[in-house]
């Protein structure tokens, strides 16, 4: 008996070791460019761009960060994006979780065709111009709704949630709920959702991150500086000097414009990496917080009971 259990233990160990070693190297490879961003954010831009920076910072300085900290636009962008992320994600979840549940009922009339119609929109869309006209006519321009409502539901996500419902929620549970006299809505709220924590957490993450990174809709619909999302503010800062160059070049290049150009392009280069760190950090911290909902063990007790 003893020898048997020892053998089992050993086999488990080797597998674990190999697993961890591979994962470790994998992590190193992934981590290096991240490390690079970190050291580049405190190095002199010319050193970074000439390839001198690869293991240590060169000409270390915190200029990038100090400019970021002092920039009112960036802080405003943070606020807008944070509000957008929270509000947007709540709306997304409300729509997705309910819609996906309804779409699992393929035996009901109209469900299959509706599924097809929804999926159809993943491929065919009227394009930018009509959507812009629609948003405009609904009076949503320069409001936060223009950033939330178009694209409020991703069919891709609905499909994922629906798949999860179908494969992870046993039919016996649903039947039991019906027998207990639960209506569909009650079943969804009391039975399905509590068991769906992993997928809900995942969707919150997907949608949340989508909102955090979003800039195209702001680019199209927002002209009010106070409503710029973080990503838009950042892009304005980073690409500013590129556009400026072309324009100033044409401006007959009198000395005054050259001097300004030099300031601006320097600033953009200094900021480039610091800005990534500042805008990415919050998101990186969110996942560990959500992770406990993605841990196994949720199903224990549900079937046995």
């Amino acid at each position: 008996m003893q020898r048997e259990s020892n053998k089992r233990k050993k086999r488990v160990e080797v597998f674990d070791v190999v697993n961890i070693v591979i994962l470790f190297f994998f992590t190193l490879v992934i981590a290096y460019p991240l490390y690079f961003v970190l050291i580049a954010s405190v190095s002199a831009p010319t050193a970074v761009n000439s390839g001198q920076v690869w293991l240590w910072p060169v000409n270390a300085n915190f200029n990038g960060y100090s400019i970021v900290m002092q920039s009112a636009e960036i802080w405003r962008g943070y606020l807008v994006t944070a509000a957008l992320t929270v509000l947007g994600t709540l709306i997304n979840l409300a729509l997705t979780l309910t819609g996906a549940y309804a779409l699992t009922k393929t035996h009901l009339p109209g469900i299959r065709p509706i599924m097809f119609l929804f999926t159809f929109t993943m491929f065919f869309s009227g394009g930018l111009i009509p959507t812009y006209l629609l948003v405009s006519s609904l009076g949503m321009r320069d409001t936060i709704w223009a950033l939330i409502l178009p694209g409020a539901v991703s069919m891709y996500n609905i499909i994922l949630v629906r798949t999860f419902y179908r494969s992870s929620i046993p039919n016996e549970l649903l039947d039991a709920a019906v027998i207990d006299g639960c209506s569909e809505i009650k079943t969804l709220l009391r039975v399905v959702l509590p068991l769906s924590k992993p997928i809900v957490a995942t969707m919150a993450l997907f949608y949340g991150v989508g909102h955090w990174n979003q800039y195209f809709q702001a680019l199209i619909y927002i002209r009010d500086k106070n409503l710029y999302t973080l990503q838009l503010v950042i892009r304005n800062l980073l690409l500013e000097s590129k556009n400026l160059l072309n324009n100033l070049v044409q401006a007959g290049g009198m000395g005054m414009s050259q001097e300004y150009l030099s300031e601006v392009s320097q600033r953009a280069e200094t900021l480039k990496y610091a800005v990534i760190v500042v805008s990415t950090l919050p998101v990186l911290l969110v996942y560990p917080l959500l992770q406990k909902h993605l841990v196994r063990g949720i199903m224990i007790g549900s079937l046995k009971g």
């Binding site: 405009s136 680019l219 304005n236 400026l244």
Partner: peptide, 18 residues
């Protein structure tokens, strides 16, 4: 009305389209 360089091209086309 000011339009920042970053948003210029798209907003320009949309102005005419709308």
């Amino acid at each position: 009305t000011n339009i920042p360089g970053e948003q210029w091209w798209e907003q320009l086309q949309l102005m005419f389209a709308s």
